[in-house]
């Protein structure tokens, strides 16, 4: 039974690798951003805007955003293929799962485009 057609990298090994690389990127971004906010006690709009005006920060943010999209797709795929199964939900499970993946895919793309708009739109 082939259930991997909706996986991200079309193979478990690719997904495994992408999941880890994207995780490291997002962890680095989280640690950096939390550190920046904590180390800047009276953070004002000017400083915040200055940070996000830097090209490197926008690239760092974009990498995080793209990592998020891939990471979320792989993670949600793993969850959905484990719980929305024929054994648990009967014959309609596959239809339900693919529908759920389409909805979550739309949300993921929305997050990505919205994020890009925020980063380059102020």
């Amino acid at each position: 039974m082939v259930t991997a057609v909706t996986s991200f990298g079309r193979s478990g090994l690719y997904d495994w690798m992408i999941q880890r690389v994207s995780a490291i990127a997002m962890a680095a971004y989280t640690v950096f951003l939390v550190g920046f906010i904590l180390c800047t006690p009276d953070l004002g709009y000017e400083q915040w805007k200055e940070l996000y005006s830097q090209l490197w920060m926008r690239i760092f943010s974009l990498i995080t955003l793209l990592s998020l999209a891939a990471h979320a797709w792989i993670g949600l795929w793993a969850v959905l293929t484990d719980y929305l199964t024929n054994r648990m939900m009967g014959a309609k499970a596959t239809v339900l799962r693919v529908l759920a993946q389409v909805v979550l895919g739309v949300v993921t793309v929305t997050y990505t485009v919205w994020g890009i708009e925020i980063l380059w739109g102020f």
């Binding site: 709009y45 915040w48 805007k49 997050y111 925020i118 102020f122």
Partner: peptide
Amino acid sequence: LCMLDASLES
């Protein structure tokens, strides 16, 4: 994302 949007807009 909502917070990031609001924090940067103005």
